[in-house]
Design a binder for these strands. Structure first.
Lengths: 325, 325
DNA sequence: ATCCGACGTGACAACGTTGTCCGGGTTGCA
DNA sequence: TGCAACCCGGACAACGTTGTCACGTCGGAT
């Protein structure tokens, strides 16, 4: 910048003014400065700028589980879009479900003085962020609530969705409904399980724990569990799958056996329409989830100091799957 | 930091040393400083640190088309993994295929003094980056080559893959092969088209431009084009789809009609195995693409000044699709 | 006993930018 | 012609950190 000033024959400050489009600079000087900038290939140092002027780095952080997962990719996409509208860059980091890593990444982002944080929590204790929150770093949690810190939160109606989905099975007369889930350790799974029980309770059917299977991590595992359940005496007549990975495995096994069990799965997915088996999915607008959170975040960044709020977004039942040829 | 120093009764510099784990500080002082840090909730300002020490910001930039697209999400995931191994944060920005936006984003990232840039080019002229490259910002282009600037590039063997895929159709005796593509303006599409022609040339079959359809942006459009082609007199007996969005639409329409046309598609996709129609896909390792590029980038960041190289990764033909029940 | 080197600590300046303030010049009006 | 108001440009300090250097102390070797 000194070089630019020298070359243009003006002071440092004038260059700064030109670079920042400050009004009240002689047009002729502006031109000279711009010429010098072009000639020297000058590029403003955003770090120094943020450091000096304090406050804004025009950067927000997004912490998710894993960027390659379509759910989080959709979140990242929507967040990026909102960030872009606010001329803000997005730092994305993946916690890989590791609370220690989550903490380290969030601390690092704070050290970089991001203007705000969008967090899909992995751990259950976020009290280490309390100092940051009090220090004024805006923060919005999405998909799962934070632990030990009061902040804006945007959630899906997991319980209501599960209740509606299983409710439909119950209405259709099913009583032996198998429930397949990943890990009970995750907030969303617990909510969905509660929703399923809400729907089953009024039927008076005993809550059969043998029909609830946990720890299903991938489609292959889901297929195995389905096979096992169907080979039991008195097999289930319907399946409730708690996420789309599990749904895939269930579809595969039901197809293979030519079964006619009913299937309801949480999470819609791109190719659900093309599945060779009829199923009902509990769908929601992932982008809307992230958009809501990001817009809330920017409202905070722009100075909104009102009491933290929690927003719950609705889910919807959708028929998927094409009949086989 | 001054406050920490005061509270600990040491100099500013000693605090800096402790914070940076510099050896040769009395254990007792270290303890006093750490206590003060904890009490005051001190967090080092990464901006100031990078500014002062110059060189490294521990941040790299990734420019892609659109983060929500699974292809780019896979790239982002692999890049994030490599970045993480190097304790580096990742700024991700989407160009939305807009060259102007691409330029603005890349400039902005440079202004933030990222340590390096990973770019899936949208535009065709990147000469505006030449100054940056000469100034020493490492840069690796992936999936498509840059224009007007010499830099490391990691590509897929688009041409070879298309040649092999269409070759298989030719071997199976097909002569009327429809070719469906998105935009001829994109490098990868041109390469794939060249590959298809490579395979068709030896058959002596006339290259029938009526069988080549461009401008297919989504599955629905692909379905329409397939319908149109099949309704012609002397319809194609095989289809070559140049990306997975198009493949989806083709599958859907072929299923609907109970057609038995052969299908080869570029790009594998998650649920290809479950497609209710037999197809061959031209697959490649997207994560390997990004991993290679990112590792190349870090080698540059760590000081490798050798001549820019271009790496081409292989593709593979894979049978997909389940037979219908 | 003396010197040398290693080690631990601190004072100071600098990274590149912008906020503050002041001064010089111009304009308009009495 | 004088004065006030205004506008533009520049000098200077500061943002929070770290590199450089110099100083003091201590242990060991000569």
């Amino acid at each position: 910048m000194v070089d630019v000033a020298t070359l243009a024959g003006v002071s440092l400050k004038t260059v700064s003014r030109v670079v920042n489009n400050t009004p009240n600079v002689q047009p002729e000087l502006v031109e000279r400065v711009l010429a010098a900038v072009a000639e020297l290939g000058f590029r403003r140092n955003h770090l120094a700028s943020s450091l000096r002027s304090g406050q804004t780095t025009a950067t927000i952080g997004l912490l998710i589980e894993e960027i390659a997962n379509p759910f989080y990719a959709a979140i990242a996409g929507a967040a990026a879009e909102v960030a872009r509208r606010h001329d803000t860059m997005l730092i994305i980091a993946s916690s890989e479900e590791d609370p220690a890593r989550e903490q380290q990444l969030l601390r690092d982002m704070c050290a970089r003085r991001v203007d705000g944080l969008l967090v899909v929590p992995a751990g259950h204790d976020h009290s280490f962020l309390r100092a940051e929150v009090e220090l004024g770093t805006p923060m919005v949690f999405l998909d799962r609530p934070p632990g030990g810190v009061l902040a804006d939160t945007v959630l899906l109606d997991n319980r209501g969705g599960a209740r509606a989905g299983v409710g439909r099975l119950v209405e259709a007369g099913h009583r032996r409904i198998a429930i397949l889930l990943d890990s009970i350790g995750v907030y969303t799974m617990r909510e969905r399980l509660d929703g399923a029980q809400d729907a089953l309770a009024p039927t008076g059917a005993p809550y059969d724990t043998r029909l609830v299977r946990e720890g299903i991590r991938d489609p292959a595992a889901a297929s195995r569990v389905v096979a096992e359940l169907l080979d039991q005496p008195d097999p289930p007549t319907a399946f409730f799958s708690m996420n789309n990975r599990i749904t895939l495995g269930v579809v595969e096994e039901l197809c293979r056996r030519g079964s006619d069990a009913a299937l309801v799965g949480f999470d819609d997915f791109d190719l659900a329409r093309l599945m060779p088996y009829p199923l009902t999915v509990i769908a929601y607008d992932t982008r809307e989830l992230a958009r809501t959170a990001a817009e809330l975040l920017f409202r905070r960044i722009e100075g909104d100091r009102s009491w933290p709020r929690t927003v719950v977004l609705p889910t919807e039942l959708v028929e998927r799957g094409v009949p086989p040829r």
